[in-house]
Design a protein around this nucleic acid. Structure first.
Length: 265
DNA sequence: CCCCAGGCACAGC
DNA sequence: GCTGTGCATGGG
């Protein structure tokens, strides 16, 4: 983790962007939770530390420390000037893997919405410190959300989607865990049975919530990036292009392209 | 008044 | 299968 940049990673639009809050430079804690992680004083090159209540295994999973990121980035940058530049700009960026329900809430709320307001709404969906389940990340669990009054959050039409989805998970046996054994397309189709979950949100859940690094979420920025830099436009063509060109590292390519596009396009 | 925001559901071809 | 439209809400 030589070049690991905690702040860049958490603020790069992945699930933790909406569920962690910055308390100081390179230091964060979960919303409505007690857990903290932070980088050592040396910023880059410093050791990643965490509070005792946040296990080493959890940190490892959250930031995918099992991945050989320098090898992955070297591979992506080879014979690709765009990704080579993105890797230079965002060397400290890592993919994250969060809880699938947490990711579902964040990205269901994200549809046709902007990041500040997504943050605001997701913050309101966290249980208070004296509430239930602080260990799971602080976001309201589906069985609680079903009966909660969240109208004050002004989610608009997303509220009905979210509550219906919560009901399917809490009371109708929808299981994220069962998806782990399925192929990508099968798991994707299953996720899209949830109200308010379309192809883009499903891919975000697969990537950021279920650790499927072969997923390639196509939001407006990634679409713009692929159209501009690779000349591929139609959604299905982009899907095939990403699978063929990047395979199991498509998720890493997507994250780099997202960050790069937001600066360059 | 307009348009946009890490899209989706639904209708109509 | 692909394309267009309405959608709650807030900000520019």
């Amino acid at each position: 983790m030589d070049s690991f940049d905690l702040e860049l990673t958490i603020e790069s639009g992945q699930t933790p962007t909406f569920t962690w809050e910055k308390t100081a430079p390179q230091r964060f804690r979960r919303i409505a939770g007690k857990d903290e992680v932070w980088l050592g004083k040396g910023r880059l090159g410093g050791c990643l530390k965490s509070s005792p209540t946040f296990s080493r295994a959890s940190v490892r999973r959250l930031f995918r420390l099992q991945d050989d990121v320098s090898a992955i980035y070297a591979d992506l940058a080879e014979d690709d000037a765009v990704l080579a530049e993105a890797v230079r700009r965002f060397a400290g960026l890592r993919l994250t893997e969060s809880d699938p329900w947490e990711s579902t809430v964040c990205f269901l709320v994200s549809q046709n919405n902007n990041i500040p307001r997504i943050k605001q709404i997701v913050r309101g969906l966290h249980v208070r410190p004296d509430g239930l389940n602080p260990a799971s990340g602080g976001i309201m669990r589906p069985e609680k959300l079903v009966h909660a009054d969240v109208s004050a959050l002004k989610m608009g039409y997303r509220e009905a989607f979210l509550k219906q989805t919560a009901r399917l998970v809490a009371e109708n046996g929808f299981s994220f865990e069962r998806l782990r054994r399925r192929g990508l397309d099968e798991a994707r189709d299953a996720l899209m049975e949830l109200p308010g979950v379309g192809p883009k949100v499903a891919d975000c859940i697969l990537l950021y919530g279920l650790g499927r690094t072969e997923a390639f979420p196509q939001d407006v920025w990634v679409k713009k990036a692929v159209a501009t830099w690779y000349g591929v436009t139609k959604e299905n063509n982009v899907k095939e292009f990403a699978a063929e060109k990047w395979g199991n590292n498509a998720g890493y390519a997507q994250q780099l392209l997202f960050c790069h596009a937001r600066e360059q396009l």
